[in-house]
Each structure stands twice: as C-alpha cells, then as structure tokens.
Design a protein around this nucleic acid. Sequence first.
DNA 1: TTATCATTGTGTCACAATCACACAATGGTG
DNA 2: CACCATTGTGTGATTGTGACACAATGATAA
Lengths: 253, 253
Amino acid sequence: MEKLITVLGEIKALFNRSLSELSIDCVVFGFHDDQLKVLLLRTKGSDSWMLPGGWILKTENLEDAAYRILKERTGLDSIFLQQFQTFGANNRYNGKEIMARLGLPPEQNFFPERAVSVGYYALVEYSLVEPKTDFFTEECRWWDIGEIPELLFDHNDIASRALRALRKQFDHEALGFNLLSEKFTLIELQRLYETILGLEKDKLDRRNFQKKILSYGFLERLEERKTGGAHKAPYLYRVDPEKYAIYQRENEL
Amino acid sequence: MEKLITVLGEIKALFNRSLSELSIDCVVFGFHDDQLKVLLLRTKGSDSWMLPGGWILKTENLEDAAYRILKERTGLDSIFLQQFQTFGANNRYNGKEIMARLGLPPEQNFFPERAVSVGYYALVEYSLVEPKTDFFTEECRWWDIGEIPELLFDHNDIASRALRALRKQFDHEALGFNLLSEKFTLIELQRLYETILGLEKDKLDRRNFQKKILSYGFLERLEERKTGGAHKAPYLYRVDPEKYAIYQRENEL
DNA sequence: TTATCATTGTGTCACAATCACACAATGGTG
DNA sequence: CACCATTGTGTGATTGTGACACAATGATAA
C-alpha cells in the first residue's frame, strides 16, 4: 500500500512537469534476420503490450521529447526520426483505463479524459539497441512486424500507419541505412528493401537494384569484403555522409 | 470596460470547453488569376495577420475540429483537407502575447504558457469561399502566396511547410481539382500545376501534359466548350468521381 | 589437393515512359 | 473576310526501367 502511494506520487510529479493533453508515441523499426521488427513494451503485471511513448515536458521542444523518449528506451543517441501523423480520435485514449492497466485505483485518476498523440517512427540499428523498460512496464523487446499482438489504445493503428508512411518514403527516396550496420553488402541492402516494401525475396532484380543504388553516387565501395559466409565474398559498402547529404538536397522538394 | 469583461467571459467559456494545450492551424489554398492564394485573418485592432485556426472541443475528433474551423471561415462544407505536420517548438506560442494582441490585459492571461498546433492544409474553390471573420479578428481575405506578410507566432513557417507538403503530394499524385470549378479546361489545369509547382508559364509541354492527365482515365470530356475568350474554344472537362476513386485506389501504397 | 556449386560481379538488349517538336483546324477580332 | 492566337492531334528521339547470361570467386566436401 505504501508502495502504491509512492508510485502514484512519482507519476503525478512527472505528470505535473509535462503537458497533459498531449503525448508522443514512437514506432521503432529494426531489421534482423531479414525481418522487420518493432520495439514494444509490456505494462506491469499484465499481458498488454504498447508502443514506447511518453509525455512532453512543459519546456521541451516536441522533437526533443521524441529523442529523449527513444534514448530512454533504446540507449541510442543519434537516431533517424520522422514525425508522420498526429492521432486525435476522441475515443482513442481514456485516463481511467490507464489507471486500471497500471494496477492503480481508477477513481484516483489524474490523467486527462482525453489525449492526442503525435506519432513518430524511428529507424535504428538492431544490434545496438538495448531495450530498457520504464516505470510503467516490465518487459521491452522486439516483435516481428507480422506478429504484432493486439496493442493498447489505438497503437495498432499507429503502428500500421507508421509502416505505410515508411513504405511511402522508401518508394521515392533512398534511405534506411540507419537500419544496417555501418558497413554492409548490397545484398543486405536489397533484402532490407524487399522486406520493408513487403516483397518476396529476390523480387527485385539483383543487378538492376545494385545499378540503381550505385547510380545515386553516395555509396562507397570498401577494399574489405565480407567473409565468413560460404561462397564468394561480397564487397562491403558504406554511406559517404557528404555525398549522401548532396543526394538528399537534390532530391528535396 | 464592461465590454472587455464580456469578451473575456466569452473567450474563457469557449476555452473551457476545449483542449487547452493544443490547437489547429489551417492553410487554406485557393486558385485565382493563375495565382495561388492563402486565406489569412487580421486580429482586431492591429495589423497582425495569422492563419485561420482554433481549438479542439473536448469531445471532438481532431479532424472534425479542422472541418468545423474551415466551415466557420469559408462557409464550405466539403473540403479537401490534409493533416501535414504538428508544430511543437517550445517558443512557438505565448499566452501573454495572445492576450496583448487581442487588446486584453496580459496579467489576466488564462491561455496556457505553451501550445502545440496540428497543421492542416485545405484546397478549396476560390469563387465559392465567403471569407468570414471570427471573434478575434476583423478582416479575412485572400493573399497571394508570394506576398504573405509577416504572420503571428510560427505561422510563416507553417504556411511554407504546407506549401512544401502540397508540392510533394502534387509531384506523385494527380489532385488539385478541388481548386478549380467543376468544369474546367485542360489549359486551366495546366496553369494550376505550373503555379503550384512553382514553374513558369508553359514550362510544362501542353501536349505531353494533356496526354498524361488524360491517360489516368478519370477525366471526362464534355460536349460543351468554353466560349467567351478570343480564339478557338477549348473543350471543358470534369472529374468522373468513380473513375477518380479507382485511380486513387490503384495509386495508393 | 581439387572438383563442386552457390553466390558475386558485370554488360547487353528489349520495352516503356518521357520529352521535344510541327501542322492543320477553329473561331473571335478588327 | 483576312488575320492570328490558340486548340487538337501524331511522330520520332531520348531516357529510364526491366529482363536476362556468363565468367569469376572462394568456402565446402570428397
């Protein structure tokens, strides 16, 4: 009982330092074993999963809040982050429901009746992430994009909109290198594209894909080759940051 | 003085029925005389212009609020509306500043210190709009996109982001028919595209443009021709709603 | 040590999309 | 009724994309 009071106190304190009617939800994408993954959290003492999210401090820029939240969950500092949509259905959220989910007394609800959420998606390097739980949750782990369970609130909707926005962006801009390690082979990049665009393996023609990507001119072929696998060792590539910036500028607007 | 108290009371009443930390700002585009226009409002007793906007009622869906705000300003019911970005810089807005702008005593400020705003852009038929002022403003009129004055808050930023989002969408999807009257000539459509994309007149090749647009298959050529102008009378076209819906579905995702 | 074989690296051809361009028909204007 | 800016239409050139084949490589297994 005493513990419950402490918990309530801490949440209230956090809450008083934040904007109350507004939250941020993040869809964090990772890539592993040729599969697209999303980072999810399980709330304490329940089977309910949700997207990582949080509140915006009263003095904090919206985008800074998103970066902070991501850093708290993944340990990562520099992350590819994109705001994609704001969700404001009047029934998407319910203060009392949150209290109940957290095992707190609903009649003591101090959350607002209503909250709007700004959706961000992030692209991170799977192997660098150390999933961390927060105050409300006891498990944080990757889920395959095809096996996402039923989530709290409208988080299933947010996740699927994020994927759609991601695909749209992939369709007309070369990106996603944040999902791979610094050095990668072209076939790894191709698998990434096929996975994100929802295509089957080798749907993209290997030769045409490589020609196209290389024609952008921002990939640098290293002397090094990727060894270890069977068969001929492929070259490793990396993104040349300066040339990539030029490409992005030319591709803007 | 008595009037001031009444004003304050009315604003407070409206405000109490709304979410306080969140607002909506709309960039309403119209097309007239081969120029792209934006609807702006001038606040009472000042030279300060701003975008039409408003608050979200506590029980109201975000999108419904945007439609309501637009209807209040333009008189129009069915409008092409698109959420494009949410603006949350911590210094973008200041409650006391609003009070001062409205000629109200800043020390009685009841607006929050901070507010985040969801940006929508709208495409409307210029000739159908009857600009209406609201409680805070005494003038509402169209401005040429190239002559937008300095606006309150971060509204210049919002407006230019809206234009950028609009151009991006135009780049890979046929739309914008909402900006023309129901029946239009292909050259009018071409001027619209050139204006929105920021191209000079006749930059697009007339023949290729018409071929491309018609190849989408949702424009219907009418028997009617547009008379009145000098020279040969061009055919009028209109959008076939069913075929347009098919085109949009095929073009999705 | 060497044959095997899945995989890598590269070039060419066919087709589709886009671009550049010309000329006859039209219908107010003077 | 001659004029002329504008409309309606078609064709060849250029570019971009998609389909496809073959020699080189290097770990694996005989």
